[in-house]
């Protein structure tokens, strides 16, 4: 197995710098910048050798006094007005998020979403402010990445995390809209139930409930304790028609009480536009709502992961665009060169 050639400190510096500049500046700019640095480092090393230093030590000192490749290339990129395509990538991410935010109103307006979500001017302003905040978050992430001279991926993560936090903190949880719709439907049904059971004109047991061995009737039960128990009553066969009718009347009275209570509960819940943290704080104890809260949290987390993935993918896309652009520029220069 062939051994990798050992680079001297000057070559090491140039190799590392080339790696960091390649793809970010035009190829000939990278070449001339590195040529200039090589000349400086060589002269400096020669001077040190003339002063009596060993060649290796002289080259090491020349590279050391020149600076760290990471910092030096960052300064070079800044001096060349390098526009990080990461910003473009962040823009794509934010645009995608904004699109998602705008999609809901469009959906409601033109496709007549069954949820019947209200698209008020306030909601549109809220969406616009949220989009601006997301853009700010993405910009802040990119700024942190640039200022700290960290790898772009950290900037992407910071931007994604900020977007996620803002989304989690301020955005109405979509699950709650679904829950609201579901409970509105329930309320309608319950009102219908109340009207039906209040009439006290329950007919005799219909023919369909007559069985050879008796009559189908609801099982006698006490008050239900949770929404899960509502509607889960099963039936049994009773011997006489009078017993069956009595059971159905009792069931009707019980259901009426349940309907009134549930409707009261729904009406007391005036504000359903809650963010995920509010959702968790408010509905930690109730079975039905805790399930909704959990689902909402999972959805918010998935949204956060989606944002991060979107940022990552779009950053890679941005880099790809940049590389293609640079390659095209260099090809164009070759075509225009006087040799051709």
């Amino acid at each position: 197995m062939a051994k990798k050639p050992v680079l001297n400190p000057i070559e090491q510096f140039l190799a590392l710098s080339e790696k960091r500049l390649r793809g970010r500046l035009e190829p000939d700019k990278v070449a001339t910048t590195l040529m200039e640095a090589r000349e400086h480092l060589t002269y400096r090393a020669e001077e040190l050798m003339e002063a009596g230093q060993a060649p290796d030590a002289a080259m090491a000192m020349a590279a050391e006094t020149f600076g760290q490749p990471r910092k030096w290339t960052r300064e070079i990129l800044l001096s060349e007005n390098y526009k990080p395509y990461l910003q473009i990538a962040n823009g794509i991410s934010v645009a995608a998020c904004a699109y998602i935010l705008v999609l809901k109103p469009l959906w409601t307006l033109f496709l007549k979403s069954p949820s019947g979500g209200e698209v008020t001017p306030g909601y549109l302003i809220f969406s616009a402010v949220l989009t601006a905040l997301l853009h700010l978050a993405a910009g802040l992430g990119a700024l942190i990445a640039r200022r700290c001279a960290v790898k772009p991926i950290l900037g992407i993560i910071v931007a994604g995390a900020l977007m996620f936090c803002i989304g989690l903190g301020f955005m109405t949880n979509p699950v709650m809209s679904q829950a609201q719709k579901s409970l509105r439907d329930d309320a309608t049904l319950l009102q219908q139930g109340i009207r039906a059971y209040s009439s006290k004109t329950l007919p005799n047991v219909p023919a369909a409930l007559k069985m050879p061995e008796g009559f189908v009737a609801p099982i006698a039960r006490k008050r239900v304790s949770s929404l899960e128990d509502v509607g889960s009553g099963s039936t049994e066969i009773v011997a006489t028609e009078e017993m069956a009718a009595s059971r159905w009347r009792d069931y009707g009275a019980l259901r009426l009480a349940e309907c009134r209570e549930e409707l009261g509960q729904i009406k007391r819940l005036s504000d359903w536009r809650l963010s995920t943290p509010q959702l968790l704080l408010r509905f930690g104890a109730n079975n039905f709502n805790a399930a909704a809260a959990l689902l909402g949290t999972v959805l918010a987390l998935l949204h956060g992961v989606f944002c991060l993935m979107l940022c990552g993918v779009s950053a890679q896309f941005g880099r790809f665009i940049h590389r293609v652009h640079m390659a095209w520029l260099s090809q164009d220069k070759i075509r225009r060169s006087p040799i051709n």
């Binding site: 640095a37 020149f66 001096s79 007005n81």
Partner: peptide, 15 residues
């Protein structure tokens, strides 16, 4: 301390 600092300045002044 860091002689390489000169080149970003030269490039900026050139731009």
């Amino acid at each position: 301390a860091k002689e390489g600092q000169l080149y970003p300045i030269l490039h900026r002044l050139e731009n």
